[in-house]
């Protein structure tokens, strides 16, 4: 026997999977390079951290997805964030620990975390 409040909690908990289904129509895309190079460099914890962070912050306009080799294997793990305002920004040598900062500053506040981007790394 469930109360109305308990049903509501179940409904809210399911929002995450609802979010995944609508993935193809989202405004903001976060793509993780998951080829052998990416996986070897630790892309999987990064991907999972992204999913957790997006779910935790209830960012319903964001889809987190994976792709194959992006082509810059020496910089893996690589993630690309595409937003309507900023276009595509590439982050390199990403770790799970950097994810909350990247999501907060880039996705929520619209300011890329420059020090982690590929541009900053090359300098």
């Amino acid at each position: 026997m469930k109360t109305i409040a308990e049903l509501k909690a179940i409904r809210e908990a399911a929002q995450g999977s609802k979010n995944i289904y609508e993935g193809t129509e989202k405004e903001i895309r976060i793509v993780v390079g998951m080829a052998t190079c990416g996986i070897a460099a630790g892309a999987r914890p990064v991907l999972n951290a992204l999913v957790d962070e997006v779910t935790r912050r209830k960012l319903n306009n964001v889809v987190v997805t994976q792709t194959g080799c992006i082509g810059i294997c020496q910089f893996e793990p690589v993630i690309e964030i595409t937003t309507p305002e900023l276009g595509k920004v590439t982050y390199v040598k990403v770790t799970a620990e950097k994810i909350p900062q990247i999501i907060t500053e880039h996705v929520v506040n619209g300011k890329p975390v420059e020090q982690y981007t590929i541009g900053a790394y090359k300098k």
Binding site: I4, L7, I10, R11, A13, A14, Q15, S17, K18
Partner: peptide, 18 residues
């Protein structure tokens, strides 16, 4: 059943009864 509830299932029944 949780998946149905997650897609706003039984929300209409709740609305009707309350």
């Amino acid at each position: 059943i949780d998946e149905y509830v997650g897609q706003d299932g039984y929300l209409a029944l709740e609305k009707v009864l309350t």
